[in-house]
């Protein structure tokens, strides 16, 4: 029990740290939290009637990234022409309902909710991206690294002008 509480705390703190780095636009710092083997995907939410079928499609991915393409995205932000985030949006990633699903020798599967608030430019209405994360973290050289992120948004038609931000 004691070990579980410590692990829960460690993973929660890792997720909060990750949110802080992204909210503070420290993308290089964020990249250091990722395993070289990372799979970073976002399937498409769909309207589906039959409860037996998943209400998302993995044939269509809104993010379909690995460490190479994530690096490209980050390097792009550093150019002075990445207009979608120039000036940057203000974002708050609220991570909650952190549930550790599986623990193996050096990996944990963790599910959580993400409520991402995005304020862009002078807009008085903010964008909200709400959804579910399924992550796998792995201990690499003593540090937890993100091996897999799967994010499913709750909207079928996203209420934000683009996904120039990480989820």
């Amino acid at each position: 029990m004691h070990e579980n509480i410590i692990l829960q705390h460690e993973i929660e703190q890792w997720l909060y740290k990750e949110s802080e780095l992204l909210d503070q636009l420290n993308f290089d710092g964020w990249y250091e939290l990722l395993s070289e083997e990372i799979s970073y995907t976002m399937p498409l939410r769909i309207n589906q009637m039959e409860k037996s079928k998943p209400d998302y499609s993995e044939a269509t991915l809104l993010f379909d990234d690995d460490s190479t393409t994530l690096k490209l995205r980050i390097d792009r932000m550093k150019t002075d022409m990445a207009w979608a985030e120039l000036p940057p949006s203000r974002t708050r990633r609220n991570v909650s309902n952190v549930k550790i699903k599986e623990v193996s020798e050096n990996e944990v599967a963790v599910h959580s909710n993400l409520l991402l608030y995005r304020s862009r430019s002078t807009d008085t209405t903010a964008d909200l991206i709400s959804g579910e994360r399924k992550d796998v973290l792995r201990k690499e050289n003593g540090d937890w690294k993100l091996v897999s992120r799967w994010f499913l948004a709750d909207q079928t038609s996203l209420g934000t002008r683009n996904l120039a931000i990480f989820v």
């Binding site: 002008r161 996904l163 120039a164």
Partner: peptide, 12 residues
């Protein structure tokens, strides 16, 4: 795509 690095600058 919605996250496309070409795409996103057009929407601005």
């Amino acid at each position: 795509g919605a996250s496309g690095i070409f795409e996103q600058d057009d929407t601005e």
